[in-house]
Structure formats: C-alpha cells, structure tokens
Design a protein around this nucleic acid. Structure first.
Lengths: 141, 141
DNA sequence: AATAATACAATAACTAGTATCCTATATTAT
DNA sequence: ATAATATAGGATACTAGTTATTGTATTATT
C-alpha cells in the first residue's frame, strides 16, 4: 500500500479518502472482478456520501496508473482486478454462461504462440486477452 | 445465398429486402468486422429509407440464426463477421493499438489447452475468445 | 494563513443498443 | 387474385453504463 502511495505521489495525484476507500474494496475482493456499480455499492456502506462519478473517475485513474486492470467479460460492465505485477498477465478466465461465475486459470503456453505470431505476421504483441466460455462444474447437472 | 434463404424459411423468418441488403453488406466486407453503425452507413447508400433499428434487429436475428458471429474488440461497438462454419471458430484476431486494424490468424493449438482445462477444472468449454493486442507491421516505424 | 491546484458530489449529457407503437409489407387461405 | 393474418419496418422514446460539467470543498504549496 505504501507502493501505491508512492505511485500517486510520483504521478502527481492525491491519495484521498475516497480513492483509498475504492482501492480497499478492490483489494478486499481480489477474487471477484467487480464492476463499477458493485464497487460503488460496497464503498457506500462505509462512505455513504460518495458519488458514483468518483468511482468511475478513480477506476480510470487506477487503471492509468497500472494499479488495476480492466477486464471485459462481455456482460455489459467494465470489470476490474488488481494488477499484482504490471507485466505478467498470464492468467485467464473461465466464464460460466449459466451462473456468470468467473474462475481464473494459469496458462503459460501462450508465449510460444505469441512468438510464432510475431515472426509470421510481423505483429508486435503487447497484450492478449483469452477467455473461455462454458459451464462450471456446479452448472452441469 | 440459397442456403441462407433456406435457413430463414426453416426458422419461419422472412428474407426481406432490408435483411438481404444488410447481409449483402456483411458478405461484401467479409474482412472488415463491421459495427452496426458502419453497416447502417453502407446500407443507407442503397436504401436511404432504412432505419438503424432495423439494422440492430437484423444483426440480432442473423446472430441467432448462426449466420453471423458477434465479436467484441472492446472498442465500444459490437462487431460482426460471417460465420462460414458454425462450429469452427479457430481463427483469432490481432488488433493494432495504433491504427485499429484487425487481422486474422489461424490457431489450432487451443484444443489441447481446452481439454486440459476441462479435465483440471471440471469446466465444460463451449466457446473461447482470443485476442492479441499490439502494433501491426505498418505501425512499428 | 493565503493562494493555487486538485478532487469532490450532484447532475446533466452522451452513446450504443433496445423496446414501443403504428404503418406497411408479405405470406397463407379462400 | 383478394382478403385475412402475421411478421417486419421506420420513427422515435427509452435504458443503462459511462463521461463531462459545474460549482464547492479539500489538499498541497508558498
């Protein structure tokens, strides 16, 4: 958390109470991939006076500062996760089409693939996005 | 195209002039991954009286009939491509972060991966979504 | 403590996509 | 072919998520 304070300072932003509160919610729900609205609802319990716009602005800022990472599960919401290590995004997501649950899965196999693509297509890859859609154990009765 | 006529008939839908025109635009731009708005603009040249709602409705219908496939490039638009073979979605996309160009790349390597995930996580995969973000040959000066 | 910059809450605006309503067109039966 | 009925289209209102604006409050610097 001191690291984050540092990042804010370096980039000339203030780590205010509201921003801190929003970040706390994300940290406390690392496994959850929350949407702005969900974050808002949780933050409001502690800081009822906070505005939804502040949540959106803070999320944008945290994303810009590489503290969080924006995900797109194609469910109509932005979703965010903590960015443990800004350059290592080698876990991907299993999304249940029935209950909407999102699980994480680690995959390193993509690196070979990326090299292949870079060589064959002359395309310099800086990020990737891999999602698998299907049915989780619970929902395959 | 006769196949498509057939599909419409079988499912009890009418292949009207507007629907035909929208489909033509998609066929004529197979490489493009057009958004609803882009399709609307092109279709309007031939059928100026067409409404945007018809485009959205037709795209939903074509997707339901598995004639087109909806893509999400996370740029704020739905994008669509023709569904040559309804069960074989083994090409993926390279998206240039500078010019926005989208290229296709064929990858079969995901199948092993999917089996592995299904066995390890008890998750039944029915679709996947793989995108690579980076810079195309032209944009890496 | 005064000044300047940044952040806040409230709220209006924006945008892609969807629903509604009524008219028009197309299919089916006569 | 014509009438009856269902489906589709156009115009437009609406929705939901997100962003921009505005005036006030808080924070950092002098």
């Amino acid at each position: 958390m001191d690291d984050i304070k540092q990042i804010f300072k370096e980039e000339g932003y203030k780590l205010t109470t509201q921003r801190r509160a929003i970040l706390d919610v994300i940290v406390e729900n690392q496994d959850k991939h929350l949407s702005p609205e969900e974050i808002y609802d949780i933050v409001k319990k502690k800081y009822p006076e906070i505005g939804i716009a502040t949540v959106y602005r803070t999320l944008q800022l945290l994303e810009k500062l590489n503290i969080i990472y924006r995900l797109n599960f194609d469910d109509g919401y932005n979703r965010y996760e903590l960015n443990y290590d800004s350059e290592n995004h080698h876990h991907h997501h299993l999304i249940c089409l029935k209950c909407g649950k999102v699980m994480e899965v680690k995959l390193d196999l993509l690196e070979n693939l990326e090299n292949e693509i870079e060589n064959e297509n002359g395309f310099k890859i800086v990020d990737h996005n891999v999602k698998f859609f299907g049915y989780c154990a619970d929902c395959q009765q």
